[in-house]
């Protein structure tokens, strides 16, 4: 992975903790002395809608937003969201996605069908794809709330110049003390999952 400039797109469903993940990654970049910008979505789309946040780091970052074809890595909290936002990933970029499925209201109401070929379509795409059940991994660590940090743990393996020590400091500065231990375990789990 190129160390100078890195665009990370984080996608999921409102309420899954994408904002915290982008804050955490942004904090790590800051502690590593990089220029960094984070773009967040607040307001209406947080109500169970499709959400996206961006973290961009490098020597000098201008736009805080990752546009079509500009993401180096996409961190996806929900499988169909990975496909929805795939056009924002550059050709040959990396998708890290949880296999979790959250049915949108259109599916709940029977107006649409949740597609059954998401993982297959991703595997056959022109992107590098890592997929695993982050929800199950989080449950194994003791809390479904740590899906976001597990995914960040996986991501950390692709950023060579942010050291484990920096990630650990960033985590302490991002999560509340009473949830720290749980999230530290989750991050370590993500950083050591076999693919």
């Amino acid at each position: 992975m190129e160390s100078k400039k890195l665009n990370i797109l984080i996608v999921g469903v409102g309420g899954q903790g994408t904002l915290l993940a982008s804050k955490f990654i942004g904090m790590a970049a800051r502690l590593a002395g990089r220029d960094v910008k984070v773009s967040e979505v607040h307001g209406m789309s947080q109500r169970g809608g499709s959400v996206v946040t961006c973290v961009k780091m490098g020597d000098e970052v201008f736009s805080p937003v990752i546009d079509l074809g500009e993401a180096d890595v996409m961190l996806s909290f929900e499988q169909v969201e990975a496909v929805r936002w795939l056009p924002y990933l550059k050709k040959g970029g990396t998708v890290i996605t949880s296999e979790q499925k959250i049915e949108p209201m259109s599916v709940v109401l029977g107006d649409a069908v949740y597609p059954d070929n998401v993982i297959e379509a991703l595997e056959k795409s022109d992107a590098k794809v890592i997929h695993f059940d982050a929800l199950k991994a989080a449950e194994a660590q003791g809390s479904v709330k740590t899906v976001n940090i597990i995914l960040c743990g996986v991501l950390s393996r692709m950023i060579d110049d942010i050291t484990p020590d920096i990630w650990s400091r960033a985590l302490r500065m991002t999560v509340a003390p009473k949830f720290l231990e749980m999230n530290e375990k989750a991050f370590a789990a993500g950083a050591s999952i076999d693919f």
């Binding site: 469903v13 409102g14 309420g15 209406m44 789309s45 947080q46 109500r47 169970g48 809608g49 499709s50 546009d67 079509l68 074809g69 500009e70 169909v80 969201e81 496909v83 929805r84 795939l86 056009p87 924002y88 990933l89 550059k90 050709k91 040959g92 970029g93 998708v95 949108p104 209201m105 259109s106 599916v107 649409a112 069908v113 949740y114 597609p115 070929n117 998401v118 297959e120 379509a121 991703l122 595997e123 056959k124 795409s125 022109d126 992107a127």
Partner: peptide
């Protein structure tokens, strides 16, 4: 045009507008 990654086969992605919690 952007140089985007593309899925290996067509996926019918259902809309996901915000909803009442």
């Amino acid at each position: 045009e952007p140089k985007s990654a593309t899925a290996g086969e067509e996926v019918k992605v259902p809309a996901r507008p915000p909803v009442f919690c």
